[in-house]
């Protein structure tokens, strides 16, 4: 997702990361109890995972995150009017890139004389599950996070 942000930054595309709650709390990164702790975890996300996009913190009660469905790693795209035009229950750079390329083509199509009107579409996209990286991240959170995930999803 960092690369998508860089690749489109000169096309008037902004990109931010909203810090939510700990999906898999562990000994090293336990559940959040204060905004100070939330700031520390968000800084760790930047430093350990190398998130280069601006990181913004949601309120401790997750008001923003909960309004949008509170999935652990979802992505939305908004237009300049503040209207969501894309929503995805998981984050996938290929899907986001594909959507942006579509939206950036709209002005060209209008210039070419097409009369465009919005419509709704649903489709099933496919993401890379990156299981090894996921388990590495669980281990980074602490043994508790690994054990709880394995108990919740025994088949992995």
């Amino acid at each position: 997702m960092n690369k998508v942000a860089v690749d489109f930054e000169n096309s008037d595309i902004g990109s931010v990361f909203i810090y939510t709650h700990e999906a898999h709390p562990g000994e090293n990164y336990p559940h959040l109890t204060s905004m100070d702790q939330k700031f520390r975890h968000a800084e760790a996300l930047r430093d350990v995972y190398g998130v280069t996009r601006r990181i913004l913190l949601d309120a401790l009660n997750g008001a923003c995150h909960r309004h949008f469905g509170s999935m652990p790693n979802m992505t939305w795209i908004f237009n300049r009017s503040g209207i969501p035009v894309y929503k995805s229950d998981w984050s996938d750079s290929h899907s986001v890139r594909n959507a942006l390329e579509y939206y950036l083509e709209i002005p060209n199509r209008r210039k070419a004389g097409e009369r465009l009107a919005p419509f709704h579409v649903e489709r099933l996209d496919y993401r890379n599950q990156e299981r090894e990286l996921f388990y590495e991240s669980l281990e980074r959170n602490g043994p508790k996070a690994v054990a709880e995930f394995q108990k919740a999803f025994p088949s992995g």
Binding site: V16, P72, G82
Partner: peptide, 25 residues
């Protein structure tokens, strides 16, 4: 991250489109 305040609307109306990823450590 510098503790200053902003808002969702402020952030998503700066560009033609804005990607918003939600997540945590």
């Amino acid at each position: 991250l510098d503790r200053s305040t902003t808002s969702l609307k402020t952030e998503i109306t700066k560009h033609a489109y804005t990607i918003v990823e939600f997540g945590s450590f």
